[in-house]
Design a protein around this nucleic acid. Structure first.
Length: 199
DNA sequence: TCGACGATGACCT
DNA sequence: GGTCATCGTCGAA
């Protein structure tokens, strides 16, 4: 069991872009189906609420799906994409501000055998946990975990134990519809990790 | 009701 | 480079 977890107050900062960068190097763990799996976060993207054309809550859009984004930071926002993939986000900021961080890749640490089984793979390579749909499947995250805390219970994040020296800041993936906001440098990844979805 | 469309990934040439 | 599986969500009708 972890000795230290990031607290909800960490995620209630109003600086979702800064938080996205800070999460690189932190360890994301899940205890799902009685199995522990974890990985070091290597790639994130920031989605900045109503002012961000790429964000599901753009212009304050409030629906059953997006409502969780308006909750106080420190909980999960998980939704089904392309009818196939569950994407895992961490809600940030205070209540009423719909910011979130998409976790796009992790480097496998604990429970690698379990992750291989969930992904129906036999050997460890980059594709096991790189890419937002791949890591959620490996960690056992599903839509049923939507709105769950990421600071207690079965999902938690531990602070980084070593400084990440080379963090690349670049554009987000798969949001061409966001026009000029698609050019914002709001994707972060560890340049020294091979567990990154797209370079 | 109903049609359009994804914050993707795997596999093909 | 290109195709396509697959389904919940959303907004129009």
């Amino acid at each position: 069991m972890p000795s230290e977890k990031l607290d909800p107050s960490f995620f209630q900062s109003g600086d979702v872009v800064g938080l996205s960068k800070k999460l690189i190097g932190c360890k994301l763990s899940t205890f799902i189906d009685n199995k522990l799996t974890s990985g070091i976060i290597t790639e994130t993207e920031a989605y900045a609420g109503q002012g961000d054309k790429a964000c599901h809550a753009h212009l304050g859009r409030f629906t059953k799906r997006t409502s969780v984004m308006y909750e106080p930071g420190g909980i999960a926002y998980i939704y089904l994409c392309y009818g196939i993939h569950h994407l895992f986000n961490i809600v940030t900021n205070t209540k009423g501000h719909a910011d979130a961080i998409l976790i796009r890749a992790v480097e496998p640490i604990d429970g690698i055998d379990i992750m291989l089984e969930r992904r129906q793979k036999t050997n460890l390579d980059k594709s096991l946990t790189s890419g937002p749909g791949n890591l959620t499947k490996a960690l056992g995250l599903k839509k049923t975990h939507n709105a769950e805390s990421v600071c207690s219970g079965n999902i938690w994040i531990e602070p980084k134990t070593t400084e990440i020296k080379n963090i690349v800041e670049t554009t987000r993936i798969g949001i061409d519809y966001a026009e000029e906001d698609a050019l914002l440098p709001w994707r972060f990844y560890d340049a020294d990790s091979k567990f990154v979805s797209v370079r």
